[in-house]
């Protein structure tokens, strides 16, 4: 099966995951027939239709967009740094956006709270990205991969602690802490979907355009420049795309961890190394992963809701350990 067909095969999987996310684990007895009849003939007196439309649909749509955004952001980061451990959550970009989110939402600094949320998150993610970029030594030509990762992890931890501090200072009984730090899709509305969708679409378009330059960059910085690729241009546009996607995702769902680390590796195993194909594959796989995780997270403590972030983070941290170890073994031999 050619890679193109494999990407095509992911579409029905996405639809099934979407259907499951719509119907499974609900207090109301939702069935797949309800979804079908909703599409065919919407009946505003039907309670199941109302539940699906006002609660489930925005949640599933948000999971789709956020998953796609985070996965593609991870892919672009891995492509730009040529580092298999790069991803928004390992390098602290998500945590930076989440810190900005927390500062804005808790009104700790009054004038930040007035600005639009997406702009605040965008600034937070950019700042975190720039810090990792310079502290990790990415601006020098020979990049040491372990160094970037360690710098990123430390910054991630710093932002996480600052977010915790901000939330505790703002909210004395501190119950919000878990919600702010793990990322959840529990309270998503159509307004959130409208916020995230256009920016994710824009980011994905940018990522598709980056496919060919990233293929060149895979050969190495120097060879890319010899072949006429603009290294500086790719880095700027790539960073912009990453920050945009992460900011959009965090605005809606908080810092959902490690989606951007796992999905690109799965996609590479499935599709190969061509970035032009990897971008759509990652978007689809990321959406599937987040839809399935969100459904499972709902089932963890059913009928209580659990944040989806705890599932992806647990899964992803194991994956991170596996990757770190494999990288080291490869470097050792």
């Amino acid at each position: 099966m050619s890679p193109m067909w494999r990407i095509g095969a992911l579409v029905p999987v996405l639809l099934v995951a979407f259907g499951l996310a719509l119907t499974r684990y609900s207090q109301f007895d939702l069935r797949f027939q309800d979804v079908v009849s909703l599409v065919l003939a919407f009946d505003s007196a039907n309670l199941n239709h109302q539940v699906l439309l006002s609660l489930r649909l925005p949640r599933a749509l948000a999971a789709t967009f956020v998953g796609a955004a985070l996965a593609v952001a991870g892919l672009i980061m891995q492509g730009m740094t040529r580092n298999p451990l790069a991803s928004p959550s390992v390098f602290g970009v998500s945590a930076g956006a989440a810190l900005a989110f927390a500062i804005s939402a808790t009104e700790l600094i009054a004038w930040v709270a007035v600005l639009p949320l997406l702009l605040v998150n965008f600034c937070g993610a950019s700042l975190a990205g720039l810090l990792v970029f310079f502290l990790g030594g990415l601006h020098r030509t020979p990049i040491h991969p372990v160094r970037v990762v360690l710098a990123g992890v430390a910054l991630n931890f710093l932002f996480l602690s600052m977010t915790r501090g901000a939330v505790i200072l703002a909210d004395e009984n501190a119950y919000g802490v878990f919600h702010w730090l793990t990322g959840s899709l529990g309270n998503v509305t159509f307004a959130d979907v409208r916020l995230v969708a256009p920016w994710t679409a824009l980011g994905l378009a940018g990522a598709l355009w980056l496919g060919q330059p990233l293929n060149l960059l895979r050969l190495g910085e120097e060879r890319m420049q010899n072949l006429g690729g603009g290294l500086r241009q790719v880095r700027w546009l790539g960073s912009l795309v990453v920050v945009l996607l992460v900011a959009a995702a965090v605005s809606v769902a908080g810092p959902i961890g490690f989606v951007g680390l796992m999905v690109p590796h799965v996609a590479r195993a499935l599709i190969g190394t061509d970035y032009r194909l990897l971008v759509p594959a990652c978007a689809l796989l990321g959406a599937i992963l987040l839809l399935v995780s969100d459904t499972l997270a709902r089932g963890l403590r059913f009928p209580n809701d659990s944040p989806v972030g705890i599932l992806t983070t647990l899964l992803g941290a194991g994956f991170f350990l596996f990757l770190a170890r494999r990288r080291i073994l490869e470097a050792g031999t």
Binding site: L150, A317, L321
Partner: peptide, 18 residues
Amino acid sequence: SLALVGVALSALFAAAID
């Protein structure tokens, strides 16, 4: 490299605690 594996292990433990 040792620090990298340790950091990853800490991340896993922290995730499990969460």
